[in-house]
Design a protein around this nucleic acid. Sequence first.
DNA 1: GCATAAGTATAGCTATTGCTATATTCGACT
DNA 2: AGTCGAATATAGCAATAGCTATACTTATGC
Lengths: 152, 152
Amino acid sequence: MQEPPSSTPEGSLIDPEVHVESFRQAREARRLELVEDYVELIADLIGDGGEARQVDIAARLGVAQPTVAKMLKRLAEDGLVQQRPYRGVFLTASGEALAAQSRERHRIVERFLCALGVSPETARRDAEGIEHHVSAETLDAFRRFADGRSNA
Amino acid sequence: MQEPPSSTPEGSLIDPEVHVESFRQAREARRLELVEDYVELIADLIGDGGEARQVDIAARLGVAQPTVAKMLKRLAEDGLVQQRPYRGVFLTASGEALAAQSRERHRIVERFLCALGVSPETARRDAEGIEHHVSAETLDAFRRFADGRSNA
DNA sequence: GCATAAGTATAGCTATTGCTATATTCGACT
DNA sequence: AGTCGAATATAGCAATAGCTATACTTATGC
């Protein structure tokens, strides 16, 4: 049950500690996904219409309004948004920062997928999930590739 | 609050229904991630050591053993694994099928990232998260790219 | 100025995924 | 065979993310 990492380990089983680290990173990303989706969307709504209302957030995410209300409360506790009762929600400085970072990552991933030859529709849908699991190094590779393709 | 999709929509706000669909797809992928991770890992452990014990699964995932026990119960209810009390766990036919598909996708994503110039370590870690959010179309693009690079 | 509609808050439920603590069973060794 | 350690089962707790139902505010129209 405890063989050392042989030179040809049949294929898939890597060092357990490395394995754990990969899963831990994926779990952590999963935990942050929703938060990033929210601040990104809030930034978009404010940028487009000047305000972000719960009903609009709910309509875009495809969830019920109380679900949004609960999440906004949590985001407020985390210092990412500021909400005034019965009014729209706004981003704090750190909320803006996170939103900007998320939007940039999203944009790069989507542009990269398109550059790779994926259809725009699929690129948009896949980017929504992939963006949260892309490290800085991979994001850089994506950006370089997309730049190279668009310049060529 | 309800402008039509102008030709230059400032950037980020797309058709609400399309937006919802992307988020729905991401949520669905999130729901399946863990299941895929489990069956993939179980297949690897069986392939490597002949059996998959809860302690080994827990050690690889970086979670506690009761967490694994609870998850295996759910996988058994879903007909993906078969467990004998106080013994290891095995994959059913559909479990094997899902595992094979997940492993293949994982392999392609990781190989693709490497082909793109990402370091093997980062490729491994990012692939663990990305694999669950890659559609068939994108996966195909990944495969083509990696093949092209390795043949070149 | 008041009724009504629209938006927000809140209560309370479910399911999922993690944990610790503890009981039970299996296996191996003497 | 009996004991002891390791593995598994089970109970119970917390946090997250969804839902419906309902109360409350705001804003709008007449």
